[in-house]
Amino acid sequence: MEEKAERVWADGCYDMVHYGHANQLRQAKTLGKTLVVGVHTDEEILLHKGPPVFTEEERYKMVRGIKWVDEVVEGAPYCTSVATLDKYNCDFCVHGDDITRTTEGVDTYDEVKRAGRYRECKRTEGVSTTDVVGRMLLLSRAHFCRDEWIEKHKDDARTLSTHNDAASPWTDVSRLVGDSKTLEEFSSGNKPKPGDKIVYVSGAFDLFHIGHLSFLEEARALGDYLIVGILSDHMVNSYKGENHPLMNLNERVLTVLAYKPVNQVIIGAPYDITDEMIDQFNISVVAQGSRVPHHEVDGVDPFEAPKRRGLFQLVDSKCDMRTEVIIKRIFDRRDEFEQRNKRKCEDTVTNGTHGNRV
């Protein structure tokens, strides 16, 4: 087996951070002891690719939060050079197996490839920032085929909260199929130690953003071990409506698992946090964010049991970012994002590439 490098470099836009970005960084970390990640500025992304959805400060924080990232370089150059690798004492850089180009059509990794300081990892199929932005541009009921299914099961909303279908009626645009190997790769694998104070939170965690990350960081600070319940597609849609969630259950699970505060996830978690669940997982604190609307299904408070037992705690994420804010950013600049996605698709057809950076 080849000995790991001391320091490896990865870079990109890391806009609309998702499990594909996390998987690239996970693979990069397997090649070195320290993973240094360069993140481009808004100005550089606008020049070569089009407007980013997240600001550079938001993207810096999101990348820092990913569990395989050791260091973040802010304002990294769009074209990766040998000088950049040398500056940060990195042996080589790692990127997915898709070619990325500048606005002039130049391979952004040409120099380091010619110097033999480039390594390739497998790109995560089925997701990209372009894809996620496209889902928001389609924010209508047009791609749904769920009405008959919901009518049939409308009286079963709670028991169906564990419904898990990769091509579900709510997220038919998304077809990631989860498997145990991928979950194992994304999981930290650690179990709570005797005496650990276990904190539990739950939610949709759709279009994962700095508000989610800030909340998870604050919740994790309340104890020693954080369990995150990820609600099913059906349950999220039952209280948010339209075509929510935009990321399916499998996608949301992997994205949340990639972040440092999270120790464990419950896939398709029940909406109600019951006494049985509290006892099963030895939960000491149940946290809820104070800056998000409180949803009740059928008028029942899902936090009744933890409140009764004195385990409930409101947490201030100190961040007002919400999924709706991200969607508004897309719609406020809809024409620009549509043109950006169109150029990306045309480049893919013309060059057989994914055109731009992750």
Rank of each mutant, 00 (worst) to 15 (best):
G310M: 02
V201L: 10
D196F: 08
P77A: 09
A10Y: 10
G20M: 15
K113N: 06
D107V: 15
D70Q: 00
V39R: 12
L47A: 11
M321F: 03
T129H: 11
V72A: 06
R114Y: 04
T80Q: 00
E6T: 01
I45A: 12
Y259R: 12
C345I: 12
E111W: 02
D86F: 05
R114V: 13
E43S: 09
I327E: 01
D272E: 14
Y109Q: 05
D335C: 01
S161D: 10
S202N: 14
P270Y: 03
R114H: 11
R7G: 14
V72Y: 01
P52M: 04
N351T: 12
V73F: 02
R333H: 10
K344F: 00
V349Y: 03
F92W: 05
C121Q: 14
I326K: 00
I66F: 03
V236M: 09
G195K: 06
R252I: 09
D172Q: 13
D224S: 06
R117S: 15
G229F: 09
I278W: 06
A166E: 04
R252V: 09
D332W: 01
H244M: 06
A219W: 01
K240N: 02
T182C: 13
H163F: 08
D196V: 14
G289L: 05
K197F: 03
V133L: 05
T255Q: 07
R291M: 02
I267M: 10
R175G: 08
E58Q: 12
V253S: 14
C90M: 04
R343E: 07
E304F: 09
P169A: 03
T80N: 01
S174H: 14
L138D: 10
V8F: 04
C121K: 11
D70I: 00
R308V: 01
W68M: 03
V297M: 13
L46H: 07
K113V: 14
N341G: 02
F205A: 10
D156Y: 05
E151I: 06
Y109R: 07
V53E: 11
K122A: 14
I278Q: 07
E336L: 02
E148K: 05
F215L: 06
P245I: 11
G241E: 05
A83Q: 11
L137Q: 03
V17T: 15
V173C: 01
V265H: 02
E276R: 07
K191F: 08
M277E: 15
V315G: 00
T353R: 02
E120D: 08
K87I: 08
C319V: 05
V325G: 01
A166T: 12
Y14G: 07
S187I: 07
D86G: 02
L311K: 04
D233H: 10
E74P: 00
I326C: 01
R329T: 13
D70K: 00
Q339D: 10
A157V: 08
Y88G: 04
E2Q: 15
V358I: 14
K342S: 03
P261T: 12
G289N: 06
S140V: 04
L216K: 04
T41V: 05
K181D: 09
